[in-house]
């Protein structure tokens, strides 16, 4: 048996409202933007904005709602000490608090959104040790419309074109020796250093670590050309493959 510290990417849900119905509606919207990306993804609940109000939050109902949305709630963060025992008895992990605790608390002002995905990837990352992805998946036939291929904890190499209406995803980078015409999502579990490489950029949607872009809305001049897509901070960058 081996017990290792590992880096894992987690999404954090910043709760600012006790109304679970509201939160569910907002979160459903968010999730439906990239259902495959969020499906079965672990989630931690951050109660920083609630402060002492977190005492009144119905954590059981929240857990139920999150599970129904296909998230896996794993832990809580920034909760009042008084309820930590109750929470851990109910199967929540108590995560280390972030430094910004209390910063955002302003009486009388509530934030506009009930929930949001963490804006800063580092805020949601619990780094202990880096385990590089070493696996790779090779696809040697065209990926057809309606097909979905996911390379878990791996890079993906496709030796054929991918069709409009197809979807390929990898936790690592994606290399396509052909045209990409469907959806292409690299870093599906939040790996921000993942990249997309293709010989002809004709995709409907490209995404790295959850930051996505519809190609039609992009101003890039590289449509139909060899290109690479990567994440620079929060921004998706499309660059020519050969300079």
């Amino acid at each position: 048996m081996v017990l290792k510290g590992e880096m894992s990417m987690l999404n954090a849900l910043y709760v600012s409202d006790l109304d679970i119905k509201n939160l569910t509606t907002e979160l459903t919207k968010k999730r439906d933007e990239a259902p495959q990306f969020f499906m079965q993804s672990p989630l931690i609940v951050d109660c920083n904005e609630l402060g002492e109000k977190a005492n009144d939050l119905d954590f059981n109902a929240l857990k139920k709602a999150l599970l129904e949305l296909d998230f896996i709630p794993v832990g809580v963060r920034n909760v009042p000490k008084s309820i930590t025992k109750d929470l851990s008895d109910n199967g929540w992990a108590i995560m280390r608090a972030t430094q910004e605790k209390g910063d955002k608390k302003k009486a009388g002002v509530s934030s506009k959104g009930q929930s949001k995905k963490t804006p800063d990837p580092n805020a949601a990352v619990e780094v202990t040790q880096v385990e590089p992805t070493i696996d790779s998946v090779t696809v040697d036939r065209p990926v057809r419309s309606g097909q979905q291929i996911y390379a878990a904890s791996a890079d993906m190499t496709v030796l054929a074109p991918t069709s409009a209406g197809s979807e390929i995803m990898a936790d690592g980078s994606i290399h396509v020796y052909g045209a990409i015409r469907g959806r292409v999502l690299a870093g599906a579990r939040g790996n921000t250093s993942a990249r997309i490489f293709c010989q002809s950029l004709e995709a409907e949607l490209i995404a790295v670590a959850g930051r996505y872009q519809l190609l039609d809305e992009s101003k890039t001049e590289l449509k139909g050309k060899p290109a690479m897509v990567y994440l620079d901070g929060e921004k998706l960058v499309i660059e020519p493959l050969a300079k």
Partner: peptide, 13 residues
Amino acid sequence: VRDSDRILGILQS
């Protein structure tokens, strides 16, 4: 063409 592509996927899987 799109529908043919879809049916090719089904043939292959």
